[in-house]
């Protein structure tokens, strides 16, 4: 359980990536949103990402030397991740400063740029864990899972934040519901891949399925959001704000549990037989 800084950082940063992307979609597909509604949202993303980056420092033995971590851009995805998320943070701040009702196009471009860099940062983050030494990770799944985390948490967060103040061009909740469904199905495929893989993959799958928090997560993170949100969108009813808040909280807990398992259940290559 020593990986809490990483768990929080990855989940929070992915929330931000999802949120900034959702916001950009909203701004692009509809008419510009009101600056006074968007500004606090972007401000909150700055705080969350900044906080996440700060938390991630506690993973280091020497947090004060963290600035060194961008010195191996040539081959280290960790260096690239740190750099890209730092740029994302800067872009978000610029974005925040640009938000005013006077000039919507410039801020849209800035939002687009921030979303793009944020997505790249997220992919870099996933590639950090794409390690051949860990057969459960050495594939496309870390990237898939990280994107899905962003795709579930982001729309929910933005929807929750904006729903009271703004009439949105489209409902963000079904987006999250669909992502939850895809994420859940993706995980079933992932498990079957692990069970057929190396002994270490197999053991990882057993660790996952044998853990209570895995099943808690399945309910909180996949079944309930997918069920509630998709049912609501089929019935064309709007999810009320308190349900949305409850769902967001459930998903956040589910993602954190899932990320904890991502680190703790994974079995490294075994040396020797014992």
């Amino acid at each position: 359980m020593g990986e809490w800084p990483l768990i929080l950082f990855t989940v929070l940063s992915q929330l931000v990536v999802g949120a900034v992307g959702t916001l950009w979609l909203l701004e692009t597909l509809g008419k510009p949103l009101k600056g006074q509604a968007v500004k606090p949202l972007v401000g909150s993303l700055v705080i969350i990402l900044g906080g996440g980056l700060l938390i991630s420092l506690f993973h280091l033995g020497h947090p004060l030397l963290a600035f060194r971590a961008i010195t191996n851009l040539g081959s280290s995805w960790l260096s690239r991740e740190v750099l890209l998320f730092s740029i994302t943070l800067v872009l978000l701040v610029l974005y925040y400063m640009k938000i005013s009702d006077a000039e919507p196009n410039g801020r849209k471009a800035m939002g687009g740029l921030a979303s793009l860099v944020a997505l790249l940062a997220l992919i870099a983050s996933a590639l950090v864990y794409t390690l051949p030494a860990r057969s459960a990770w050495g594939n496309l799944y870390p990237t898939f899972f990280f994107i899905m985390t962003a795709a579930i948490l982001g729309p929910l967060y933005v929807g929750l934040f904006l729903s009271r103040q703004e009439e949105l061009p489209f409902n963000t909740a079904p987006l999250a519901g669909t992502a939850a469904l895809i994420s859940g199905i993706g995980f079933i495929l992932y498990l079957s891949l692990l069970l057929k893989g190396t002994p270490e993959s197999y053991q990882t799958a057993l660790n996952l399925m044998g853990s209570a928090s895995f099943w808690a997560r399945a309910v909180l993170n996949w079944l309930l959001p997918a069920g509630i949100l998709l049912a609501a969108s089929l019935k064309k009813t709007k999810v009320n704000q308190s349900t949305l808040a409850a769902l967001f909280l459930m998903v956040l807990i589910g993602e954190v549990l899932g990320r904890e398992l991502f680190y703790s259940a994974t079995v490294a290559l075994k040396v020797a037989g014992l």
């Binding site: 971590a69 010195t71 191996n72 081959s75 280290s76 960790l78 740190v82 950090v128 051949p132 030494a133």
Partner: peptide
């Protein structure tokens, strides 16, 4: 691998 992934 250690050398590849090391950020510093």
């Amino acid at each position: 691998e250690c050398m590849r992934v090391c950020p510093v």
